[in-house]
């Protein structure tokens, strides 16, 4: 690895992987509804297709189609333990940069909300290459006949979202994940306004559980940026679009 890559990997370890490991069960409880475009991609697969879910999180896409076989992977052991309950599939702990699969062995792959956590442009291209490498190669003389992957990333252009980012904003951001403490009934301190405790109180073994905020690193993709890195990784975009604050693309290896 080059120095820049090493730094990128170390940065992601601290600002992505360690965070997910800690928020796993809370995160999982909020991730249960599959997004429609991803659901359609998975449901349209032929029966018996074999694929990978790279960065599977809690495995919410493993519930969509039990007629295919998916080997899911995630960096977070705690999330993989949640994901592995979904039959007939299976889940392993692995890194997108070093996936433990034979090359060109899968009919399909999905990677949903994963490569926006990668912190350098070179590593983003490497990650897309790694996903493309999983897919069946196209047959000679039949471009587009190779396996297909669906990739989703968070968009910079999302002015109507809660976050309100848009064109022109900084693309590399830290996004809070707030784990709400269980509220006790007697402590009504106004509508969602957190009273600032005196430091004395804060140090006492907490009878009042505190909210805990974790920051995760994200790279927000500009319009066209996902297609650009797919091209640089040697992939061909079959279909692409914008869906609720995300850019997505279906990609296949070139001949």
């Amino acid at each position: 690895m080059t120095d820049a890559e090493q730094q990128g990997a170390a940065y992601e370890e601290e600002h992505v992987h360690a965070v997910y490991e800690q928020i796993a069960s809370h995160f999982s409880a909020t991730r249960y509804k599959p997004w429609p475009i991803i659901e359609r991609f998975l449901k349209e697969l032929p029966d018996g297709a074999v694929g990978a879910d790279v960065g599977c999180g809690n495995g919410k896409y493993l519930t969509v189609n039990p007629r295919v076989f998916m080997v899911a992977s995630d960096r977070s052991t705690n999330l993989v333990k949640i994901a592995k309950q979904h039959q007939p599939h299976d889940s392993v702990v692995a890194d997108v940069m070093n996936l433990p699969h034979p090359k060109h062995s899968f009919d399909f792959a999905i990677s949903i909300a994963v490569i926006h956590h990668i912190s350098t442009p070179e590593r983003r291209i490497e990650a897309v290459k790694a996903i493309l490498e999983l897919l069946r190669s196209p047959l000679a003389g039949n471009p587009g006949s190779g396996g297909r992957a669906l990739i989703y990333v968070w968009a910079l252009e999302q002015k109507d979202s809660r976050r309100g980012w848009d064109e022109g904003n900084e693309q590399d951001v830290m996004v809070p994940w707030v784990m709400r403490a269980k509220k006790e009934k007697e402590s009504k301190k106004g509508k969602g306004q957190k009273a600032i405790d005196s430091s004395n109180e804060a140090e006492q073994p907490s009878e009042q559980p505190q909210d805990k905020t974790f920051l995760r690193y994200y790279h927000l993709y500009r319009k066209g940026e996902l297609e650009q890195i797919i091209g640089e990784a040697g992939g061909e975009v079959v279909e692409a679009g914008y869906d609720k604050d995300n850019w997505w693309a279906v990609v296949t290896p070139q001949l």
Partner: peptide
Amino acid sequence: EGVPNFLLPGHLV
């Protein structure tokens, strides 16, 4: 616990 771990140590990446 039924979960294989394929994360590599730094010197093998």
